[in-house]
Design a protein around this nucleic acid. Structure first.
Lengths: 239, 239
DNA sequence: CCGGATCCGAATCGATACTG
DNA sequence: CAGTATCGATTCGGATCCGG
């Protein structure tokens, strides 16, 4: 039951047939954070119908992107194959590209632990990273981001259980950054760390004020030469 | 009339809402080759319903990805905005990733000038490119690929008119390579240039035999450590 | 609770016909 | 050339249900 074919013999087409169906890329996004159970995925994608989740997981398995792994004691998880993991750089680039088009959140938009984890990864700049150990809260999602050299490790805290097989970082982070969705403007470089604090976009709940500067330098998505028009304010596309 | 929302505030989600609908990425692929008229796109995507093409073009414009440009004398073309053009590296990576999963062509699969152009771009290796001037025929598509240093220029020959504004390369290519879909195995490194010739996968219609070696070195997509299983031969996904 | 399967109305897609 | 219009075929979304 292969996906509806586009009728072309081409690499892009193959890729789109593998992961281009509705919801598939978001499932992939979450699986790039780590193996997940069916229920985890459902929670991380609150609006996905369960039959679609089933169908996509089946298709992704048939495509060799995802593997179904029974767990030792109970249950099972879905995890990426090597081929699926090879999609990571594309996903990160996609996240950066899409970041440029993010407006303000719509009513009811969720920020999930996995989406925020990937957002940190997409905005992470190995080339200009400064070592640091941050605790970041957005909504009720809490993350620990540890930067050492050009490496980033993100751990999910509290509400959802820590990732399978992942060890909780010992000790405390250097500081706690509590933010709303406006943190997008900090990461996007629209406002400086100082402005972000003044405008209440972020709140440094604990730690040295300089920590925020480090954060803003380490996690940053530069605007394109010509940024897209925000769809909500775009001039109506008329013939 | 925004695309159906996934209900998440995240860069990947934004990207998918912009270009994740059916056919959108293939339209983008063709527009990355150059500005195209409605009819060009329809020809390059033989199986797209015209109402879908209209709808996607409208949505891509509203998303700031595509622009509609009236032509001087007659007609109009669609072209990418700067933001749309920023998608190019993602498209190339997607093509490389999907290339790994390409099996043999299904009956009725087409190879279009634009898809082959992008295939050449995805497989082009600036780091190991050797200068050359190739004429490549696959099916009834004819391309001229000129490699100078780490730059690649592809021109479409004959059947479809040359790209708008593009000048035809003067003089002749160093040789003519006539291939079938099996050229995938050459680019994928599954077979050597010599094997490709012996097996009739490619036919060097004119030029130095060494030209094929250069071609194979310059256009190459390495297999992943663990390549995906071909979907058609995969073990049925059983619980 | 976990991991789905089933059912059904709503929305989208695909194919073809038609038009300024 | 550049699209609309129409309409049946699919898919999606939302809810419910079910076996372990």
């Amino acid at each position: 039951m292969a996906a509806r074919s586009y009728g072309q013999y081409c690499g892009v087409t193959s890729a789109v047939e593998l992961v281009g169906e509705r919801w598939a890329l978001l499932i992939l996004r979450d699986l790039l954070v780590g193996p997940r159970r069916y229920t985890d995925l459902k929670q991380g994608l609150p609006k996905i119908p369960t039959n679609i989740l089933s169908a996509r997981l089946k298709e992704l398995q048939e495509g060799g992107v995802v593997r179904r792994v029974p767990l030792a004691r109970c249950g099972l998880v879905y995890e990426l194959t090597d081929y699926g993991r090879a999609f990571e750089p594309i996903m990160l680039a996609l996240g950066r590209w899409g970041f440029q088009a993010m407006g303000d959140p719509q009513e009811g938009d969720a920020v999930t632990p996995d989406s925020l984890t990937m957002a940190l990864r997409t905005s992470f700049r190995p080339d200009r990273a400064i070592d640091g150990d941050y605790e970041l809260h957005v909504g009720d999602v809490a993350l620990r981001a540890q930067v050492r050299g050009d490496a980033l490790a993100v751990t999910q805290l509290a509400p959802p259980a820590p990732p399978v097989g992942g060890a909780l970082p010992s000790g405390e982070a250097e500081g706690v950054i509590v933010a709303g969705p406006g943190i997008r403007r900090l990461i996007g470089g629209e406002i400086s760390p100082a402005e972000a604090r003044d405008q209440g976009v972020v709140d440094l709940r604990r730690g040295d004020p300089e920590l925020l500067e480090r954060f803003a330098r380490t996690f940053r998505i530069d605007r394109l030469p010509s940024a897209p028009v925000d769809a909500s304010t775009a001039t109506p596309t008329l013939s």
